[in-house]
């Protein structure tokens, strides 16, 4: 029995930084609603240590959430040579934007590159669909 299923997966705090990816941008020009764009957008890149800590492996899904929203996305290893525990990267997309706060602190500029979230093992839950 998958007992784990009934226990809540532990959550860990992360800061997400968004970035641009040429393959994702190319997919966007072709179709915003297509599988390719979704595959390249609904991704979180993490430090290998963090991936272990969450109890997932590359390709598994994780729940990423905060007060603004919740998305389920696929985990990838960042492959960066310098460890970056606690910092994760997501391509700029409707998935990352689901987590960005509307509050701009009076500047009119959302904090796209500093998104505080909690991340946990999604235990196989499917990637969030957009529309």
């Amino acid at each position: 029995m998958e007992l784990g299923k009934f226990l809540t997966a532990p959550e860990y705090g992360f800061v997400i930084v968004t970035y641009r990816d040429i393959f994702q941008s190319a997919a966007l020009e072709k179709s915003r609603f297509g599988e390719e764009y979704r595959k390249l957008s609904a991704v979180i890149k993490m430090d290998s240590g963090d991936i272990k800590k969450l109890g997932v492996v590359e390709g598994d899904t994780v729940v990423v959430k905060n007060a603004c929203g919740k998305v389920v996305v696929r985990v990838e290893e960042s492959g960066y040579d310098v460890p970056h525990q606690g910092v994760a990267y997501m391509p700029n997309s409707p998935w990352s934007n689901s987590l960005v706060s509307a509050d701009t602190g009076g500047t009119g500029v959302p904090k796209y590159k500093m998104i505080k979230v909690m991340v946990s093992n999604a235990r196989g839950e499917a990637i969030t669909g957009m529309m």
Partner: peptide, 12 residues
């Protein structure tokens, strides 16, 4: 432009 996808979801 596609503000629904490039703005924070709760704003858009």
């Amino acid at each position: 432009s596609d503000p629904m996808s490039c703005l924070p979801r709760s704003t858009a």
